[in-house]
């Protein structure tokens, strides 16, 4: 049987600290049958579109327009898509 290991206190603290919303970030998140463009900390999405590419384009355009400082793109498996 695989042994479960404990997470270090430092890592736990980092995860908990990451909860504080940074409203200068806009996320592209998987939804049922589409992708949501959402400000970090907001309750509602700005847009929900079918294509991930389209959602990314909308988010990047808002950064160009100065509405946000950066885009965070998520994959369907729940990980970050870095370098997006």
């Amino acid at each position: 049987m695989k042994r479960s290991l404990h997470i270090s206190e430092e890592t736990k603290a980092k995860i908990v600290a990451s909860a504080k919303p940074d409203p200068s970030k806009v996320h592209v998140l998987p939804r049922s049958g589409g992708w949501a463009v959402k400000r970090e900390g907001a309750k509602k999405a700005i847009r929900v579109v079918k294509s991930k590419t389209r959602a990314g384009d909308i988010a990047h355009k808002m950064v160009e327009e100065g509405k946000f400082s950066s885009v965070v793109i998520h994959r369907k498996d729940g990980t970050f898509q870095r370098g997006a």
């Binding site: 479960s4 290991l5 997470i7 890592t11 909860a19 509602k44 999405a45 965070v72």
Partner: peptide
């Protein structure tokens, strides 16, 4: 939908930080 979005934001941070401790999510 908001809970689901929050879960995805949490999960991405969670997985990335677990890697620092060389842990995978199922362990």
């Amino acid at each position: 939908t908001n809970i689901w979005d929050d879960y995805n934001m949490f999960k991405a941070e969670y997985i990335e930080n677990l890697e620092i401790d060389k842990l995978t999510i199922n362990r």
